[in-house]
Amino acid sequence: MIPERLVTIGAVAGLLAVALGAWALGEIFTITLATRAAILALAATGLNIALGYGGLVSLGHAAFFGLGGYAMGILAFHAQSYTPLELGSLTIEGTKSMPVIWLVAVCVSALAAWVIGLLSLRTGGVYFIMITLAFGQMFYYFAISWSAYGGEDGLPIYLRNSFPGVDTLVPVQFFGLCFAALVLALLLSARLRSAPLGLALNAARQSPARVAAVGISPTRVKLVAFVISGAITGLAGALYADLNRFVSPAMFSWQLSGELIVLVILGGVGRLAGPVIGACLFVTLEHWLGGLTDFWHVWLGAILLGVVLFARGGIVGLLTGKAGPHV
């Protein structure tokens, strides 16, 4: 059986190799698919911190993904229409600069995660699942009925935002940015897993009473993890919006929350490489099965049922020969 560290490095290197190979062969579409996989992997890496490390089954992570997307959409919209954003007495200029947009996306989704986490962590278990789902849906309906930014039709952004020193219009360079963000998030996630916070989180998942007994509040630890998790997913949302140059309420949809969980589970819950492998597998399946039949979701559903009922631990579990995460 393969050690987990090798699986992680292999998965990340594999994604990079596919994109670089496609670049060498001039296969632009494959680079776009790899970029999509990298962004979804980033979103799922965020979710994995809450879901895998903290055992918080959030069915509302699309809320953060969408907030990141709309942070980009709204700032870029005001920049491209040369109208400032009026917030009461506060006037904010729009921007096309990715670093600024990312910062806003991360802050906004972290704030939302803090509020949602504060409310939903008052309970646990199945309540948590339903409440996160409901709050995700709240943002969805809000985005639909908020006609100033496109409402149901969404908001097109004509030109991809810029990053100093990088020509983001070149697909492989934009892939490079997304890949770098993914690697940074994975490093953060790996660091977090062995940091005191990660250890406390892992313990809080398994036995909240014992964590409380040694003087650590399990709820606070989980809340911090949920905020970090939401922030990373929000960053992924901003990148995703830039990939498509379009934001719409679909980024808030509960199906997306479900798919993010699917990515994590397909790859392996609580594993560093889980989200990366899951995202690559998902994008491949989507492209391959979607080419074969319009009804590819049926087969995705069947595969998923198979994984849940018979292959606990996902792909990383199969590769490393351990069903559960061994953090």
Partner: peptide, 8 residues
């Protein structure tokens, strides 16, 4: 997950 798969 399993019931999400059933929805699909």
């Amino acid at each position: 997950l399993a019931t999400f798969a059933l929805i699909l």
